[in-house]
Design a binder for these strands. Structure first.
Length: 270
DNA sequence: CCACGCTCCTGCGCGC
DNA sequence: TGCGCGCAGGAGCGTG
């Protein structure tokens, strides 16, 4: 999936193209996503003008005025704008229709989600528990130090817990920890204020760099216009097991943490 | 409350 | 070449 930068790039791709346009319905070809897609989705949004496309963590919030569509791309989801009459490919599970154009969701693994929310989306059960946005000023070394002070959790899994901080997935957790020179297994609560400052800065740098590069592209991600991102070419550690560290030349190590591959430089990161 | 492990699903790359 | 296995960007839920 799409981590925060990929979701944000998707938002920037689809927002300008669709904001202000009125929906003409939806075509749901496969409703079995993480939660079943509402069979009345089309009739709910038909005739409503899309007012705004926002992002909260890895969720996209499509503001239709009297309700919001909450979209999550799971691990393999992507959104593209296509001509409404273009034939859907495999795993193109649904289209949100806007006259001649459609916002098409593809998600081979079906971990994604499309949910209609009548009330304030910020109060929705999926959105309300979410933690701080890492690119906002609230998130800082001081915030991280205060929030993690009593945690025994390894810093890597801590960073990936969306109830604490949103948007950091498996790739950018490893990349941020490398930039901050912190070993992924260090207990979050044991990081000094100085190291928390370095880590907060590293997270912002990593996410901003990925955004600037147009997002990462693994197998399943494409920006809204279908163009690939290039950030993956600049990974320091992710997926580089055994390859020399770009800083010191030591072989990058891979290990498992919380059922997820974790990459680090044993020399640069302590 | 907190930390951790399991789970949903499909596709692909690697090794035999 | 063909096939089976392991792994993949998430995160909610159950358990201890």
């Amino acid at each position: 999936m799409p981590e925060l930068p990929e979701v944000e790039i998707t938002r920037r791709g689809i927002g300008p193209a669709l904001t202000g346009r009125s929906s003409t319905g939806a075509a749901v070809r496969e409703a079995r996503l993480r939660e079943p897609v509402d069979p009345r989705l089309g009739s709910r949004i038909s005739g409503l003008q899309l007012r705004d496309v926002r992002r909260r963590g890895k969720y996209l919030l499509l503001d239709f005025g009297e309700g919001h569509l909450i979209i999550h791309l799971g691990m393999s989801g992507s959104l593209r704008i296509v001509p409404a009459d273009s034939p859907p490919g495999p795993h193109d599970h649904l289209d949100l229709l806007f006259g001649p154009r459609a916002l098409r969701m593809r998600d081979p693994r079906r971990f994604g989600l499309v949910v209609w929310a009548e009330a304030d989306p910020e109060a929705h059960r999926l959105i309300a528990p979410l933690g701080v946005e890492p690119l906002e000023a609230t998130f800082s070394g001081a915030w991280l130090r205060a929030a993690s002070r009593r945690s025994t959790q390894a810093i890597k899994t801590y960073l990936m817990d969306s109830r604490k901080i949103v948007g950091i997935g498996n790739i950018y957790a490893s990349e941020s920890l490398f930039r901050a020179r912190i070993r992924p297994t260090v207990p979050a609560g044991q990081l000094s204020s100085g190291r928390c400052g370095a880590l907060a800065a590293a997270i912002k740098e990593t996410l901003e760099a990925a955004l600037a590069a147009g997002g990462s592209t693994l197998r399943d991600f494409a920006a809204a216009d279908g163009s690939p991102g290039y950030f993956q070419q600049t990974y320091f550690v992710y997926g580089r097991s055994g390859l020399p560290c770009r800083v010191c030349g030591s072989p990058i190590r891979a290990t498992q943490m919380g059922q997820r591959s974790t990459y680090y430089c044993p020399r640069c990161q302590r």
